[in-house]
Design a protein around this nucleic acid. Structure first.
Lengths: 106, 106
DNA sequence: CTAGTATATCGTCAATCAACGATAAGCGAT
DNA sequence: ATCGCTTATCGTTGATTGACGATATACTAG
C-alpha cells in the first residue's frame, strides 16, 4: 500500500468499465487535435451547420478539413446531412453529452 | 446561412479562445489511448499512488507503462513523487478539474 | 562499495497521423 | 448531357505513436 503525502484522498470504488474507458479514449482521440476542437467549437457557436464555411475560416486545405470532419463524424460527435450540392454538419448533441458525462465521471 | 432541420439550436456566442482549445486538445491527446484512461482510473480508484503496481495490473511491459505515465505527467494530469527507490504517482486534482471544466464548457 | 530493486531512457520497428494536391463523385442549373 | 460548384476520396510524404527489449539511472540495504 504505497501512499504519499501530496496525493489527494481518492474514492476506493472498484469500477473498471472497459467499454466506457474505450469510449472515452475514442472520443478524446477525436478531439486530440486543435483543429478538430476548433471545428467543434465553430459548429457549436454558429447557428448554421455550415461546411464549406469551415474551410474558409480554417487555415487548412479543403481536403484536410474534410478529413477532420470525417474523424469527428466517425467518433459520432458530428453528423453530416446532404443538403443539395453541399453538406450540412452539426454537432450530435447526445454524443457530446455522453462525452461530458464520461469526463465528469472521472 | 445554411441551416438544416436535424440540427439543434446553438448558442451564437463568439468565443474562439485559442489557448483553451489548445489546452483541451492536449489533455484529450493524453487520454486518447485506452491504456492511459485505464491508468488514470487506477490512480483515481486506489488510495495509494502506486507505480510498479500499475505494471502488474496492466498487460503491458514496464517500459510501455512508464511511457504512458510520462505522457500523462507531461500533460499535467498526473504527478510523480520519488519515494525512496520507487515513484509514487497520483492524479493532479487541479488539472483534472480544469479538464472537466473545459469539456463542460463545450 | 556492492548488490538488488524500481523506474526512466534509448534504439528500433511497424503502424498510424496530418497535411497536401489531384481527382472523383454528387447535385442543381442550363 | 454538360457545366459549375461542393465535398469526399486517393495517393504520397514526412512526422508521430505505441510497443518492446536492452540498458542506464537512482536509491536502499548490507
Amino acid at each position: 500500500m504505497t501512499e504519499c503525502a501530496s496525493c489527494p484522498p481518492t474514492n476506493p470504488q472498484i469500477t473498471a468499465n472497459p467499454e466506457a474507458e474505450q469510449d472515452l479514449a475514442s472520443l478524446c482521440k477525436a478531439l486530440a487535435h486543435p483543429s478538430r476542437v476548433r471545428i467543434l467549437k465553430i459548429l457549436l457557436e454558429r447557428k448554421s451547420c455550415i461546411c464549406g464555411e469551415i474551410v474558409e475560416v480554417m487555415p487548412l486545405s479543403q481536403s484536410t478539413v474534410s478529413e477532420h470532419l470525417r474523424i469527428l463524424k466517425q467518433a459520432g460527435l458530428v453528423q453530416g446531412e446532404v443538403d443539395g450540392p453541399r453538406v450540412c454538419y452539426c454537432v450530435h448533441p447526445i454524443v457530446l453529452e455522453q462525452f461530458k458525462a464520461l469526463v465528469e465521471a472521472l
